[in-house]
Amino acid sequence: MAKELSCVVAGFGGQGSLFAGKVIATAGLIEDREVSWMPSYGPEMRGGTANCSVTLSDAPIGSPLVTRPNALIALNQPSFDKFIDAVVPGGIVVVDTAMVPQITEPEGVRVIGIPATKICEEAGTPGLGNIVLIGKLWAETGFCTEEALDGALAKVAGKKPEKLEQNRQAIKLGVNA
């Protein structure tokens, strides 16, 4: 079994951070692991930052609010700044360098930057930077099996076949970035 994933996905409202969190959580569901997904909610969602906590574990999950993540997906600068110091040593941060110009790397934390927004734009599928970053996180951590990740995409983004195919491509772009 994979180790516990305590992940924060954060960005502006509209960047798809809650959606990306759902993809990760659904992968955990498919693997029949313990899963929790907890969004930020309320006024801060209106034009501010939107973030969610996702935990995949093999033991019952305590608080679903992840305060010390071992994985962070940062979609913009304020989110990176807000959460970077909370990441535990040994943790990993996947960040969209097209949106986060100023990157710091705390000791013991691995920060991987890829221009996710630009990558998917160039591939002709704009707006899937969040999924590109999931692909990168998956490539670096293997937080679930390939089948579970694909199954999660199908469950969460599978209503329209062409949309699902674009999401699959975005994962690949992230894996290869």
Binding site: K22, E34, V35, W37, M38, P39, I61, S63
Partner: peptide, 10 residues
Amino acid sequence: DGMLGQMMEP
């Protein structure tokens, strides 16, 4: 509470 209401679990 708001945590239980908003969170997703299997």
